[in-house]
Amino acid sequence: MRAECQCGRLAVELPGPTPAVVACHCIACQRRTGSPFVVLAYYPADQLTIVGEGRRFERATDEGNRFETFFCAECGSTVYARAGKHPSMIGVAVGAIADPAFRAPVRSVWEQSMHDWVTVPGDVQHFPRGRG
């Protein structure tokens, strides 16, 4: 399984599916993606192989941690991210995996800023803010 940017210069080799798939509706993710939410599949960092060099953008979170996103310097696609509160995990953008059969989110966070027309179906944990 592989996640990659639009031009293919930045990729992440994945060991397979993961049970840790999270939809985030925070304003920062909306602005970063240009979409009403992002879906990240989280893996232990030591299980992934990153191919190519991503540019890093780091921001503070509302909870006082740091959040890093890594994107392709050529095409601008975000491919993966790392949250300061879970430094041993990497969140891979599910859209970069480009598999319509990929697992649906198990959690939906920052729903206080979720667009009114968005619905997260299925048996999902819902949080108005982060999990805390």
Rank of each mutant, 00 (worst) to 15 (best):
C24A: 08
C24M: 11
T18H: 09
T61W: 02
P17W: 04
V21F: 03
G95T: 13
T49W: 01
S77I: 02
V79C: 05
Q112D: 13
W117T: 10
D123E: 13
A98S: 13
V118W: 02
P44K: 12
Y42H: 15
A93E: 09
E74L: 11
P100L: 02
L14W: 05
A81W: 05
V124H: 04
Q6G: 03
G95V: 10
G132Q: 12
G8S: 02
F57Y: 15
W117Q: 07
Y80H: 13
P44E: 04
R31V: 10
F127S: 04
V22P: 02
R107N: 09
W117H: 12
V39R: 07
C26E: 00
V92N: 02
F57M: 10
Y80D: 01
A104E: 10
R9V: 00
P19M: 01
R66C: 03
D46G: 11
V21H: 02
V109F: 05
C26Q: 04
T69A: 12
V38F: 09
G8H: 03
R103Q: 13
H126K: 15
Y42N: 14
I50G: 02
A11W: 01
G132C: 08
F67Q: 08
P19Y: 04
R66T: 12
L14S: 06
V92R: 02
I27G: 04
P105L: 07
P19R: 08
L10K: 01
I97W: 03
R9F: 00
E4V: 00
A98W: 04
V106Y: 01
V109P: 03
R131L: 14
C7P: 05
F57D: 00
A45C: 02
G54Y: 05
M114C: 12
E4P: 00
F102D: 04
Q47E: 14
A101I: 00
R103V: 08
V109M: 10
S88A: 15
V92E: 03
F67R: 09
R107I: 00
V94I: 12
V118N: 04
E68K: 07
G132I: 09
E68H: 12
T49M: 10
R131S: 13
S108A: 15
A45E: 13
P121D: 14
C5T: 05
R31A: 08
M89E: 15
R9D: 12
D99I: 04
V38G: 05
P17H: 11
E63K: 14
I90M: 14
V38K: 09
I27H: 12
D62Y: 04
F67K: 11
D99H: 11
D123M: 11
E58L: 07
C24H: 08
C26R: 11
P36R: 14
A98F: 03
T69K: 02
Q30I: 04
T33F: 11
M89G: 10
G54A: 11
Q47K: 15
A73Y: 01
D46C: 08
R55S: 11
R2K: 15
N65R: 15
E13K: 13
T69L: 09
L48K: 06
W117F: 13
R82D: 01
P128T: 08
T18K: 09
H115M: 11
P105F: 08
A93I: 09
